[in-house]
Design a protein around this nucleic acid. Sequence first.
RNA 1: GGGCCCGUGGCGCAACGGAAGCGCAACAGCCUUCUAAGCUGUGGGUUGAGGGUUCGAAUCCCUCCGGGUCCGCCA
Length: 569
Amino acid sequence: MHFKTIIAKLLSKEVSSLKEKQIIKALEIPPDSKLGDYAFPCFLLAKELKKNPNEIAKNLSQKLKMPKELSKAEAAGPYLNFFVNSTFLTQKILTEIFEKKENFGKPKPENKKIVVEYSQPNPNKPLHLGHLRNDSIGMAFSNLLEFYENKVARVNIINDRGIHICQGLVAYKKFGKNSTPEKEKLKGDKFAGKYYVLFHEKAKKDETLEKEAQKMLLDWERKDKNVRALWKKSRDWALEGFKETYKTFGSEFDKIYFESDLYDKAKPLIKKGLKTGVFVKDDKNRIIADLEKYKIPNKIILRSDGSSIYINQDMVLMLKKFKDYKFDESYYVVASEQDLYFKQLFKIMDLLGYSEAKKSHHLSYGLVLLPEGKLKSREGNTIDADDLIKQLKNSAQKEIIKRFPNVKKDELEKRALKIALAAIKFSMLKIDSKKNFTFVPQQSLSFEGDSGPYLMYSYARAKGILRKASNPENADFSLLKEKKELEVIKKLWHFKDAVQKSRSSNSMHHLCIYLNELATSFNSFYQDIPVLNAENKETVKARLSLVKAFSIVLKKALKLLNVEPLEQM
RNA sequence: GGGCCCGUGGCGCAACGGAAGCGCAACAGCCUUCUAAGCUGUGGGUUGAGGGUUCGAAUCCCUCCGGGUCCGCCA
């Protein structure tokens, strides 16, 4: 039985006016665990009892008789604070962890099919800091959904069509001299990006370039052989580059969709919309979705010349995803700039009669900013994903060499990369996803304090102890009575709450903040309480069990965040 | 002009309507004992401003101020 239910049963005997359910709802978790594990706010009874809450709390604390699961109830001002029986809790939590292992803290299974779309790179620009936040969220959220026993499809969409693509191609054709990424020793996405930037430099002085790009777009749509061949070559270069970064960063996809396959397949949808009056022709001969009656700005669906608008491909893609995965839920991990766009997309598809729309959710996250302002790749005010990873990896290497001067080169590389990625991912996930993220290098890249490496370090310390001992069998958990031991156990107990908070708010920061608290409690324990040198063998075994339990939960949680822990660092 | 989001100690961030916390930075300590990427302590906040609702507001409502973002025959 859950502790809340036990407390509610206990209280409802004394407080006839409140039903058990109401009490369960009213129970809170005190801000500091020193105050208690659960709190009942006695304001709720003040009116009907005509007493002040402090008095009520005091009276109740004297009257209540504790069952075995609880140790005491203490009045603290207007709150009646309950303490769980720590021996009971320790036994329960540790037993559960060893039984369930990485399934400890698993919430009630949802058993749904879910599609998560994220990353959405642009083939004319290398991946940057914004993608790293996007991918971090997309991967971690997908992992979380899998923990709920959902079948998750991670998908990506490449916007490989349109005038911006042709701009890069024009520049390449004119100035590229049939060069290749190999010849210039550039990663494919960097190579493609170079010509896109070059186009905009040259186009400032030469207006014919823009016209050439427009002409190329028409040729592309006509499926001109030469244009298509060039286009495909360039796109594949970019994709090769992305693939490399994804592999390094740990972004994985079950499927990659291409806008070029989708953009012109919306005709039936548009026909349907016109027939049902969802779409109308406006005075400029454009087809628009009339959304004003829903207090959403109208959306253009087709240009006056009949050519496609970006949203066409997303309309098609939603149905394609459903065809491919029969999803119960579909998430779009896209920055908050596009809040309105997704409102429009979902409304339009809903009006067209597709129930997929109601299953679709925009997982909107705040922009990534630099202290000096917004990222603007065209103006060079950007942070390249590969560069950032490399830079962090270098500083991680330096730290490792300080500690292990004789570490082998490949081991050094491996560890440094994992530490670098942990730093990046954690710094991006620990902030409420709807909030803007200000990237302050000195802080975001820190290996200290509230950071990914801090968590890994705690894990490595735990593993360090476990390596030096044999597996603790038949430990007597009741020997764990130290305050610092109990603090860790209580944190382990709260793992599930953190998972559920992250799920219900669509933000991984709850889990991150929890993990930092968990690791802090462990480090404090580590500092004060000897494990291998405890006073007797039985205590050694009990403490080893605690260390092991901690390592199991932390490892699982890090994996949810898509952070790979190190056994040694 | 309208919509959405945000405003919490110097900086970056937490806080189911309930008892303002964490990390950097600053200052003072702790390595002959399981990894000091750590631990312990000190200082620092009328939660942008003003009203309202409530026993109780950082949190909900209104007004204002500041910042971001969107409102394209761009993607």
